[in-house]
Amino acid sequence: MELITIILSGILIGSSVYMMLSKSIIRIIIGTALLSHGVHLMLLTMGRLKQGNVPVLDPEVSSYTDPLPQALILTAIVIAFALTSYILVLALRMYRELGTDNVEEMKGVPHDD
């Protein structure tokens, strides 16, 4: 089970690299979102996956899941949500201000002091 999720997160991160290397801003943003998903899946796997166990330490329960990675992922997801929403607004501002969504065409913009 761990092996499958690790391979899955590898696929996610690999495709995110492919997306981020393209020229369109929207593709780059989708790439960053995919990267964060892959990383979060990796974080979940690192706490070891056990199916059907409670994430609570209780004297009556002998086998329990580590609750910490889940709490950490929730925090990381919230942060990734905030970043993705900000980067979307920024991308729209850039599209309106610079008139293009192609990063290649943004290179030659002169510096204005």
């Binding site: 990383v39 979060h40 990796m42 974080l43 690192m46 706490g47 990675p69 950490l72 990381a76």
Partner: peptide, 9 residues
């Protein structure tokens, strides 16, 4: 985050 995951494991 990835480094933290490794460190935690």
């Amino acid at each position: 985050v990835l480094g933290l995951a490794y460190l935690y494991s």
